[in-house]
Amino acid sequence: MSPSSFYAPSGGLPPQTQVMTDRAVFTNAYAVIPKGVMRDIVTSNLPFWEKTRAWIIARPLSGFAETFSQYIMEVQPDGGSLKPEPDPEAQGVMFVVQGEITITLGNEPFTLTEGGYAYLPAGADYEVCNNGSMPAVFHWVRKRYEAVEGIPKPDALFTHEKNAVVAPMPDTNGAWTTTRFVDPNDMRHDMHVNIVNFEPGGCIPFAETHVMEHGLYVLDGKAVYRLNNDWVEVEAGDFMWLRAFCPQACYAGGPGRFRYLLYKDVNRHAPLGSFQR
C-alpha cells in the first residue's frame, strides 16, 4: 500500500530536550492547533468504541464556535463500534485520511479508503469497523441536524473525493477550487464538509468575514493564513478553528498544492435568542 497523501497524526511524545515553543494559539476569534500538539496524552477514549482513540480538535463552546465537533479517529485493526453515535439528533461526516474503514448501514457494508467520504444522517443505524491490517484514521464531523418543516432529511451518501465535483472559483484560472461532496443548492443539508484546493500562488484575495463557523484541517502542503489580524504559517496536519465573522484569507506559497478539509454551517436562518419588549 502506498503511503498516505494526507497527513494523519501518529501520537507519541516529544523528548525532554525539545523546546516547548510552538505555534499553538487560542484567541477569542480563532484557534490554531498545530500537528505537534496531537500527542498520546491529549487523546480520548469514547463509549462503545473498541481499539480506538480520538483527538477531539473542536467542540461547541459558548461564545466561540457553537455548531459542531470534529474528531480525528484512530481505529486499530478489528476495532470500531457497534454504537458509534450516541446522539439521535446528530448527523455526521467521516473522511478517511489513512487506511480503510467499513461502515455498515442497515445490512449494507460500505468500505472507504483514503479519500473516502460518508454522510450519515441524524438517526441513522450504522456500525464502523476497521477490517484492514493497518490503523485507520478518519475525521468525524458531528452537528445536530436543524430540521425544517417541508424539507426532508438528506439521504446517506458514500463516495470518494475522486468522484466529487471540483468547482473552480471564478476568475482564478483554476488556482483555487473546491471539491464538493454535496450540491450547495441542496437545502436538505445544513452543513458542508468540502476540500479546498490551492495551486502554488493561489490565494483568497480578500478577508472573508461571514456568519459560517469553520474547522479547517490541512490535508496537504503549506500556506500562510490570515486569521483576524494575524498571519500564521500552517502546514499539513495543522487545524484551524474559527468562530463566526472571524476575518480570513490565505496565500499558498508552494512548492506544492495546499489542501484542507473545511467544515461550515449553511442553509439555515440564524437562530434568534430570547428578548424582552
Rank of each mutant, 00 (worst) to 15 (best):
G123A: 01
V224P: 07
M240T: 09
I57Y: 03
I57P: 00
V42E: 06
P154Y: 04
K35V: 06
R23F: 09
P271H: 07
F181T: 00
T102W: 09
P9R: 09
E66S: 15
A24Y: 08
N267V: 02
I204W: 04
P15H: 01
F206S: 02
L46V: 04
Y7N: 03
N131K: 08
G174N: 03
P200Y: 00
P168W: 09
S62C: 12
A156F: 04
A31S: 15
H160D: 03
D238G: 01
V93Y: 13
E235D: 10
M240A: 09
A207T: 00
D265H: 09
K162N: 13
C246T: 15
H139D: 03
K264H: 15
T172G: 00
H210I: 14
P255W: 01
G221E: 10
W140I: 05
T113G: 12
W49L: 01
G202F: 00
Q98C: 11
Q248V: 05
A136P: 04
A8D: 05
G116T: 04
Y119P: 11
E233Y: 02
Y217Q: 06
P9E: 14
V93M: 07
S69K: 07
P184H: 01
L262P: 04
E161H: 06
N194L: 01
G36W: 03
P255S: 08
V42R: 00
M20H: 08
R144Y: 12
G273D: 02
P170L: 00
P247W: 03
T111R: 13
F110A: 08
N194I: 04
H139C: 07
E100K: 08
L82S: 13
L120M: 11
Y119A: 10
E89Y: 07
K83T: 07
T111L: 05
S44M: 15
R39T: 13
V97S: 04
V148Q: 14
E74G: 06
P15T: 13
R188D: 07
R59T: 14
Y119V: 09
G79S: 06
L242N: 03
E66V: 09
V224S: 15
A29G: 06
Y7H: 01
Y260W: 13
P255V: 02
W140K: 05
F48G: 03
P205W: 04
G12D: 01
F258L: 05
